[in-house]
Design a binder for these strands. Sequence first.
DNA 1: TTGTAGGCGTTATCAA
DNA 2: TTGATAACGCCTACAA
Lengths: 343, 343
Amino acid sequence: MAGRDAQRANSRTATLEDVARLAGVSIATASKALNGRAHVSATTRTLVQEAAERLSYSPNALAQGLRAVRTGIVGLLTSDLEGRLSIPILMGAEDAFGAGRTSVLLCDARGDSIREAHHLQTLLSRRVDGLIVLGARPDARPSIGRDLPVPVVYAYAPSADPNDLSLVSDNIAGGRLAIRHLTEIGRRSIAHITGDPTYGAAQDRAEGALAELAEQGLELVGGRVYFGSWSEAWGRSATRMLLSRAQEIDAVFAGSDQIARGVIDTLHEAGLDVPGDVAVVGFDNWEIFATSARPPLSSIDMNLKTLGRVAAERLSAALDGDIGAGVESLPCRLVPRESTTSS
Amino acid sequence: MAGRDAQRANSRTATLEDVARLAGVSIATASKALNGRAHVSATTRTLVQEAAERLSYSPNALAQGLRAVRTGIVGLLTSDLEGRLSIPILMGAEDAFGAGRTSVLLCDARGDSIREAHHLQTLLSRRVDGLIVLGARPDARPSIGRDLPVPVVYAYAPSADPNDLSLVSDNIAGGRLAIRHLTEIGRRSIAHITGDPTYGAAQDRAEGALAELAEQGLELVGGRVYFGSWSEAWGRSATRMLLSRAQEIDAVFAGSDQIARGVIDTLHEAGLDVPGDVAVVGFDNWEIFATSARPPLSSIDMNLKTLGRVAAERLSAALDGDIGAGVESLPCRLVPRESTTSS
DNA sequence: TTGTAGGCGTTATCAA
DNA sequence: TTGATAACGCCTACAA
């Protein structure tokens, strides 16, 4: 196992002092040399760099953080049991901070506020520069606290406190986007089957869809939004309901990719072709679902990676004194696949 | 936004010195009082605790880590783009270390060895106590390096270097488990449809399945393992192939839940009932797939959370000098659902 | 150009 | 019981 030799030997990891001694200079000079500061002769610099190299010197970020204003650590407090949200957000944040400059301490609160408070305490103790709070569902959640010593950005699930800064996907625009796409490929008889009506996201997507339809002088097939649950099963039964009314229908906007799969299955069972007879667009662009659907599913993507990137940017801005508040909506994008190929 | 007041005021976060001053004692005494050490009078202790409370004092973990042998941070270096592996592993590790005692620094290498090396450097710089390296696919991967100053445990994807310690799921036993379950519910004509044969996991699961069948005096329907890809599409086409041979078949062991879904779909299309005519068991127990299948899919679970927990335990042991090596296999478990209900 | 010294916040040792 | 002090490793005025 790696580390055996390192542990056996009493060779603590090298410090700047070790490097300085090996290079035959003072600690201050070694520091300057390694940090690329001026007032160091070229020869001295290379001397020090070689010494550092030979000792595989790695600066102690703890010591650096102790004196510096920032530690270069941000906390990501998630409640996302699946990891479907956390990883894209993490990647976006990593990208924004620039790899190496900042690290992310990830804690999973598992939807438990006690655990969340505990993790928060730990993160503050570790002197994170800022905090990203990531909710599991896109609805307002309790603020993690006012007057924290570090800036906080809520992502995906906004904070209930308007003084906090929250970043969410613009589900209304996402709903519009889906409808616009369907009309652009010539569909006029569109139904909307979506999930749990207690989710703000479900309401928003429906609102956007209705608004876009209205602007185009269209109405929803079935006369209403079909709210239900975020499951394939609901997608199936809602579709059966729709079809049983024997109404003309040439497109379905599904509130999630899972629902969309249920929709597609049922359309197939009814002998309908997708997208020939009925086009289907989903929401989430959960790759594994969207691409393995038959046919591959067009879907609205919430740009979670961008959400993570922007969260990191807002955090950086806040650290520089530019503190924001309120809910900021980020655009969704359409990822077209075969389920809406224009025929 | 939280932090506004804190930043406006020049109130740096309180230090132990602030607490000591407010309590009217020395720093040393304050430290002892807060850490529950002996030789502090009860009255002094409460005095200090109250002062700490009033200042919402939070010990600086950086300073603690600078002195202490351990920092209480472990690095989790993942290449899991989905987050499906990372989060359960993270949760297992959090559980094992005991919440609050240890934090996890998560880095995503995105399958890029340059980025991985970079992240490794950062983690070492932050003086993590240990490292968990999590691969994206369950096959041997290059060692992250010998002679690292901290212990490393490879999870899910073993290290190619036998001197490293790796924790993997016992796919062979998992394969046996699936077959045993199918025979226990009375099935005798079992086929095995699985994924990419270049995956060690596919080979192992097949090996286990064949071994278990042999012990029961059975043979695989179709005479061979159907290797292909880890997709629903392959599950469908392989099933069609099997059915077209008009052989008797009363169960399918699928190498993944996605494949299983393709299998089930095709069985339905052929007018067969699941599990009435053909029972199906999958692998991975990816909740979202397994539970939304029709009927809900029995599946082999790799116990990723346990994997994370054991990884943390091995790391702890290594820190205490008990350094392991080699590949350790952890058992899978069967999660029965309706797709294998005994009829 | 190089070196000295102080301080970041804690904990532990040892003296009072 | 309490307190002064020395590390831990690094950076940076400031002095040489």
